[in-house]
Simulated assay, not measured.
Amino acid sequence: MGDNQLIDTLPVILLEPNQLNLFKVAKAIARIASSCSPRLRYRIGNEAQWLPRLRAILPDKLFRFGARKRLNLP
């Protein structure tokens, strides 16, 4: 297996940008590495888990407003 194929098969981990908990990430990576059939994506942290749900139920304009406010953007 070449390097590119290996990189393509690695799971994607979505992290909270402002609240990175290294212990939580390390624990998840250990669990993923020991899994027989790991998923392609893992969400670690509260924001990473709730943002997709909020985006699905909130109107686009309200979601964008909240995201801008959370990221301190104009």
Rank of each mutant, 00 (worst) to 15 (best):
P59H: 09
L40Y: 08
R41Q: 14
R39V: 11
R39P: 05
I57Q: 08
S35A: 15
S37Q: 15
L14Y: 12
E16W: 00
A33E: 05
R70D: 03
I44A: 04
P59S: 07
P74I: 11
F63R: 00
S35C: 14
L58I: 07
L10H: 04
G66Y: 02
P17L: 09
R39Q: 15
S34W: 04
G45T: 06
L15Q: 07
A28K: 11
R39G: 14
V12A: 15
I44C: 05
T9Y: 03
R39I: 06
A48R: 03
E47L: 08
N4R: 15
L40C: 06
D8Q: 14
S37K: 14
L10D: 07
K61V: 11
G2Q: 05
L22H: 06
I13W: 07
R43I: 02
D8F: 09
Q5A: 13
R53L: 03
S37H: 15
L15W: 03
E47I: 07
K69G: 00
L71P: 02
L22I: 09
L15D: 06
A30D: 09
D3A: 13
R39K: 15
P38N: 00
F65K: 08
A67H: 01
R53P: 00
N72T: 09
Q49I: 11
I29D: 01
A67M: 08
R41M: 14
L6N: 15
L20H: 04
